[in-house]
Amino acid sequence: MSSLIHQARASYAFFERNWNLTKRYWAWEIVWLVYNVANALSITFLGASAQNWGGKGVDTNRLILFLLIGTSVWSYLSVTFEGVTDLITIERWEGTIEHTFMAPISRFTHLVGSCWYAIAHGLLFTFLQLLIVGSFFHLDLARANYLTAIFMLLVGSVSFIGFGIAASVLPLLFTERGSQMSYIIRALLLLVSGVYYDISVMPAWMQPLAKVSPATYVLTGLRSGILDGTPIWSPIVWNSTWPLIIIGVISVPVGIYIFSLAERYAKRTGKLKRNG
């Protein structure tokens, strides 16, 4: 029991610390927001211009919404993923990594504590972005089912976290360029998950890759909620939910296991830190 309280306190320690860091680096948040909004807008304008290219039969409102959901989910995934991989990068940058790794807490607590904040931060960030980008278009959201949208994001978060934890070993192992390497994982997820297009337009050999990416299911479920107003209990949403649950149940323990292997390796070879 007392150990449970301890782990809860420790997990809150990460939340509070990251919140404090966000507050102090607020200018950085704004830079990110502007960057993400500009990216999202330029992609969404692509949808708005479809009519001018002779796409008479195109349902522009639907296309814009389709892209807008793509940019938002992608932004949420990136920000959350970055929040998770940052758990090592920040500590390396500040030099606190040894202090944190010496603390009497389980690695599970450490990782969960950091991810919890990443999710909250990612949700808030994406919501802001959505508000701003959405205000540029006259969107017809009469049919949208927001409950389904939030549900899909939350269920999907669990699997994103598993992937994020696995990716966070890169900065642990490659002291200099590790965090840049984690961009590869993100780029591949972006490519195969049907963020801006239907999976069916990809070459046949690439399509199976979409099946292992959690983002694919989040997007499918979320789009059907927003575009068609599908409720949570409908078969379409359920068909996107159960794969996410399976991916989450597998990827989180596997991520933590990979992390613990990497930690042992770093402690054997002196990669945690060396000066002093």
Binding site: R17, N20, L21, R24, Y25, I90, E94, G95, T96, I97, E98, H99, M102, N275, G276
Partner: peptide, 15 residues
């Protein structure tokens, strides 16, 4: 049981 002070003060400098 332990704690350690290292030669360089390692902190989140903005905090």
């Amino acid at each position: 049981l332990i704690n350690r002070v290292s030669v360089e003060a390692s902190f989140f400098k903005k905090l």
